[in-house]
Nucleic acid binder design. Structure first.
Lengths: 155, 155
DNA sequence: TACCAGTTAAGAATGATTCTAAATAATAAG
DNA sequence: CTTATTATTTAGAATCATTCTTAACTGGTA
């Protein structure tokens, strides 16, 4: 079976870039932390464990390259740091986020949800949508004491 | 008639802050540029014209204060600068933005559009929504040569 | 071997934002 | 009206994330 890394390697080659050891190490870290929303600094510290000779600037350049190729998404929750997420394979659009104002947790919504809204906007504002960013700020299920359990698995 | 400034003054007083001359000058600039999406630096340069002795740090502090009081919204389009928008009076939620990938123009959508989506998210993810951020990236009506005219006025 | 384009590390440079210290203005008490 | 107290301000230093610069290194190739 073709691994995720192999497919990323092909994507790089298709754009005539190489999967250098530094880039591979960076991608591996991203794969190992798919659930998190790592900052460039976070990635750097983690990559150093498996490739100690790497430089911070290289991590930045790699993340920028992966963003250009739509392999990762660069997100900004307004806290002054850019965060990087592996994009779901085959996803046309950026996924959404739920940011908890209490505990700071960031959960993801993989579903689109915006199909109707987008059609409406394209028509009425004559705007050709290429991508979107949607973030909800509020209180997550963990902080909402009302005896609720984790809901995403039920959805 | 009570002016917008008066009402903002009351909001400040209600939170036991004062409308100092520097704060008033800053608010006036924001009122005069409601259509734009000014960065802190932009605001600073404009405020200096009417209150030359103001410091950049004061502008930052003022904008931060106004953000806390929900008088302005702090936005981040991912270009490394925070921008500030006067919130529509009475608006419960943040308004949305259309960012053009061609010309960089930023248009606003004042309508909510997300009522149905929010109800769905609150129920299924057990997440109590306080606010949202929605930005569409694409090609605006100006850059879309297909002979279209400004659509927002028709909406 | 010598060359060439792509890639890298290290650290300097930049740019936005926040912090610090001292000065100033407003407020309250006597 | 003074004096003490507190909030607010300025200017510039400090910080933090990010990008740039330079020189070194790599792999492929004539």
């Amino acid at each position: 079976m073709e691994t995720r890394i192999d497919r990323i390697k092909k994507q790089l080659h298709a754009a005539s870039y190489k999967l250098t050891p530094q880039r591979e190490a960076t991608v591996r870290i991203l794969l190992d932390h798919e659930e998190d929303h790592l900052s460039a600094e976070d990635v750097y510290l983690l990559v150093k464990d498996i490739a100690p000779e790497i430089g911070l600037a290289t991590v930045y350049r790699t993340l920028e390259l992966l963003t250009e190729l739509k392999i990762v998404d660069k997100i900004n929750f307004g806290d002054g740091v850019s965060r990087y997420d592996l994009r779901q394979e085959g996803a046309a659009h950026f996924h959404h986020h739920l940011v908890c104002l209490e505990c700071g947790a960031v959960d993801e919504i993989q579903e689109d949800l915006l199909e109707d809204v987008e059609a409406d906007v394209e028509k009425r504002w004559n705007f050709q949508i290429k991508d979107h960013r949607l973030t909800f700020h509020g209180i997550c299920w963990r902080c909402n004491d009302l005896g609720a359990d984790k809901p995403e698995k039920d959805a």
